[in-house]
């Protein structure tokens, strides 16, 4: 490197000599580029080619080209940093959205006749608490969102009427006969049943379902027609659940 040549240039005191680049091109095999930084208190050091560079190489065009290149690199770097920062922010937003949806709570639209006195036939928007099934806090009487054992793409809303080890008694065909059947819920399973026992496809048909299929516990109704607020009927219905089944 032509440090001796550098020494011939008068460098103002406020500049620091930092780098001596070597750029090669086809025309001019080696081009030495002197980069100076300005020392300003409280600011970042900014690298830029000194106007005296031409004197080193004796080729002003090459120097200007190199300077342009450096400028582009500087611009590109700041743009890349900005893009990176923005994409990180976006990813962070999506992650928070996903984690809230998976682990804390999420709104769900449910409809159908199977929970009729509690939930509307035409559709309710419910807030589903995703944390309690993970912690194992789902108990008898809770309304839960369950992945359907018959079709994994569907979710159903039912009421838990028995945990593992409970003895459950249920009517086999409530519309026509009073014949009842009772069994003990096996380990790791729950017994779910709709509130409307006449039109509900639930554990009476598919048997007890694994606890792992429970997706969340319903704790709040966001809207049902013109009614807003906490599920009053849910709590009220808890007391009457003995009509449907006896859990010891």
């Amino acid at each position: 490197m032509h440090v001796t040549q550098v020494a011939k240039i008068k460098i103002p005191k406020s500049y620091n000599l930092v780098l001596l680049f070597s750029l090669s091109s086809k025309k001019n095999p080696i081009l030495h580029l002197l980069v100076l930084t300005r020392r300003i208190k409280g600011e970042k050091k900014v690298a830029y080619p000194h106007p005296l560079l031409g004197a080193i190489n004796g080729n002003k065009i090459e120097t200007m080209r190199a300077a342009k290149l450096l400028q582009y690199a500087r611009q590109w770097r700041s743009t890349a940093k900005e893009v990176f920062d923005h994409s990180i922010l976006f990813a962070q937003f999506l992650s928070i959205l996903h984690l809230t949806d998976t682990y804390i709570c999420s709104p769900t639209l449910v409809y159908g006749p199977s929970m009729l006195p509690t939930l509307n036939f035409t559709g309710d928007v419910l807030l589903v608490d995703k944390l309690s099934p993970l912690l194992g806090k789902v108990g008898t009487g809770d309304v839960v969102l369950v992945r359907s054992p018959e079709n994994p793409r569907k979710t159903i809303t039912k009421r838990v009427l028995g945990m593992e080890g409970d003895r459950v008694t249920f009517l086999l065909d409530p519309a026509h006969s009073a014949r009842s059947h009772s069994l003990v819920v096996p380990k790791g399973h729950v017994w779910i049943q709709g509130d409307n026992i006449y039109a509900s496809n639930d554990s009476r048909h598919v048997g007890p379902i694994p606890y792992g299929l429970i997706l969340g516990r319903v704790f709040c109704r966001l809207s049902s027609g013109n009614m807003y607020g906490h599920l009053g009927t849910l709590d009220h219905w808890d007391n009457d659940s003995d009509e449907n089944c006896n859990c010891n």
Binding site: G188, H189, G212
Partner: peptide, 8 residues
């Protein structure tokens, strides 16, 4: 898959 007898 999750175990059917123990969800953990």
């Amino acid at each position: 898959l999750r175990s059917p007898s123990n969800y953990k």
